[in-house]
Write a protein that binds this DNA or RNA. Structure first.
Length: 270
DNA sequence: ACAGTAACCTGTTTGC
DNA sequence: TGCAAACAGGTTACTG
């Protein structure tokens, strides 16, 4: 579910509720996520104060002073701010309690994760080999063009590879390729530098616009108070097989690329 | 190093 | 209507 815009929306949503606040209790109802939730999570976090709420790719990091809580929402995860009067629903696996308030982790498919890291989270195996942030200066035409040389992989798979660039998932990959006029199955090595310049700009643009709209809600993404994100109305191709291309009017096609559904206009994208 | 596939899990939609 | 298959926004592990 959540790609970079949804995770950033979540970060911005929860930060004002938990920054500077002390953790009074932690309740784990389901520890079997992608990796087991650490058995000593409650013991180690209780009494700590949240010093910062940051994001790296699709990971959220809550720094409690030398101890970092690492959270990933997987395909179906969400975080909400609620209170003790709300009984946990099915799949509400974990609560971080701040006195009267709760930060509640919900994840039906359990592809998400909650881990504790020491003081150098960027050195942890899950974070160490991540590519640059797409909205940072490090992600530019030269970088992506150089990486693409001699690579036969479909361009859609390349930009969804978190070792190449973080945060671009199945929705925004399709959208960015539509905006830049590149066919999602085109081999990465067979795209010109000029077209990579367009692609980099398209990725930045679509992610920034989605953040501005609070992310994309298709089925289950919700913001910190349960609100939807409104970027779904801006989607050009994702989920729109059979519809008319908003640019040229020909029919939007779908096809599986790298085990994921892809949506594109065969007239606008070559 | 790179590319392709299976696997993790539950809920909802689709098709016979 | 009922049931089974297919599909869903992510990532890693394994294979060749």
């Amino acid at each position: 579910m959540p790609e970079l815009p949804e995770v950033e929306t979540t970060r911005r949503g929860i930060e004002p509720h938990i920054l500077g606040r002390q953790i009074s209790a932690v309740e784990v109802r389901q520890s079997r996520l992608r990796y087991p939730v650490p058995a000593d999570l409650a013991r180690k976090l209780t009494g700590k104060t949240v010093r910062s709420v940051t994001r790296r790719g699709k990971y959220l990091l809550l720094d409690t002073g030398g101890l970092q809580l690492l959270i990933h929402l997987g395909m179906s995860g969400s975080l909400r701010i609620t209170d003790s009067s709300q009984p946990p629903r099915k799949h509400d696996h974990l609560d971080i309690r701040f006195g009267d308030k709760l930060l509640r982790f919900h994840d039906p498919r359990r592809f998400g994760l909650v881990l504790l890291l020491d003081a150098a989270p960027e050195e942890h195996a899950l974070l160490a080999s991540l590519g640059p942030e797409p909205l940072s200066e490090a992600f530019d035409t030269d970088y992506l063009y150089r990486l693409s040389r001699h690579r036969k992989v479909a361009i859609k798979n390349l930009i969804m590879n978190s070792h190449v660039v973080v945060g671009v998932g199945n929705i925004y990959a399709s959208e960015a390729l539509f905006l830049s006029g590149i066919h999602p199955a085109r081999a990465a090595q067979r795209i010109s530098r000029a077209r990579y310049a367009k692609l980099v700009q398209a990725i930045r643009k679509v992610l920034q616009q989605a953040i501005d709209e609070g992310g994309t809600t298709l089925r289950d993404f919700v913001r910190e108070q349960g609100q939807p994100g409104y970027f779904a109305r801006r989607l050009n191709v994702y989920g729109k097989a059979g519809d008319a291309c908003p640019r040229c009017g020909s029919v939007i096609l779908t096809r599986t690329i790298g085990q994921r559904s892809s949506f594109y206009c065969s007239r606008c994208q070559k």
